[in-house]
Design a protein around this nucleic acid. Structure first.
Lengths: 174, 174
DNA sequence: GTCTTATATATGCATGGTCTAATATAGGCA
DNA sequence: TGCCTATATTAGACCATGCATATATAAGAC
């Protein structure tokens, strides 16, 4: 659903090929959005079909032509409209909590193992995000830049909450 | 993917029809898993086809027969195996953060509106979960029960983290 | 007396996503 | 020489989910 807009957002900053997009997404928004390569190409085709992006074909020899996509005025309008539209209701799907909910039947060791491996995950996420924030230099002045950094802080806050919850839950096990 | 196991978990406690399942899911795990009715029926059919559940048909007149599903030993084994299997890597898809990431282009008012409506959501979630925890009586002794309650606390912790992040992010806007 | 809600399941269609693989070439490494 | 990686796109199969609709009846509300 919003891969469409994640892509439009990238295109707003700079024209991209599908191949570039995959890399840009991995390098910038991977901490809250992941996209399969084939899904990116399909979504690009859809954007073009809907007039939200347009393609410039750049010939190459030896490899497929580059299809450089740029956002159209219609695309820009669609992106801005989406950004200001109401948040749709969430339909939660958290497989980890499904495990927590039922693992009690298996006894304390199984529960402890589950929580411990989740802790390893959360630790990894936290240090990855902390490193990312750290490598950004100085004070961001520009609003857009500040908000982009805020998405990293979002992940950090939630990882910390996760760790706190894990600690109290593990303690309550025995 | 794990709807299969969410359902097996319910069936482990008690046999259910598809209709019952929908209600049980809404009443117990809705805060971290939601499932469409048709999806439940389809998944039940799949469980039966795989030998993880079996059906007892109970005749009724005036309305469709009840198809009571109970977990099989194979199903129980599959559930327990899943509960102790390694956590698969997460592929994040957070549409809200996509908005935060790009809304900066539209200026402070648009950003503030986005964050404010998210705050309303988080407030609602927090009070709903707090009410749920409150209505549970006394100290849970049994491990399974404690872990089920922990899933509520998980939601609460994360909602609180969300609110804290919203506050600091809104403050940093201007 | 009609309208809504509850009971109970089935099916079709669309959407969004993952995984796999095909195609074709250049450059670097062992 | 042979293998792996990077570049670049396309396509097919499959899976999970959601939305809508069909069917059929009884009980309760207004």
């Amino acid at each position: 659903m919003s891969l469409k807009f994640a892509i439009l957002g990238v295109l707003e900053l700079k024209p991209h090929t599908g191949y570039d997009l995959k890399k840009t997404i991995e390098a910038s928004v991977a901490h809250f959005w992941s996209a399969d390569q084939s899904q990116i190409y399909r979504t690009l085709a859809l954007l073009v079909a809907d007039g939200l992006a347009e393609v410039e074909v750049i010939n190459q020899d030896g490899r497929p032509d580059r299809r450089l996509h740029r956002i159209t005025p219609t695309g820009l309008a669609a992106l801005h409209e989406w950004l200001t539209s109401p948040l749709p209701p969430e339909t939660p799907h958290d497989a980890f909590l499904v495990r927590v909910f039922y693992v009690g039947e298996l006894g304390i060791p199984a529960a402890a193992a589950l929580l411990q491996s989740r802790r390893a995950e959360a630790d990894a996420v936290l240090s990855r995000l902390t490193a990312l924030v750290g490598q950004e230099s100085g004070d961001p002045v520009d609003l857009a830049h500040r908000l982009r950094r805020a998405t990293l802080r979002y992940g950090i806050r939630h990882a910390e909450a996760e760790l706190a919850w894990l600690t109290e839950t593990v303690e309550a096990l025995s």
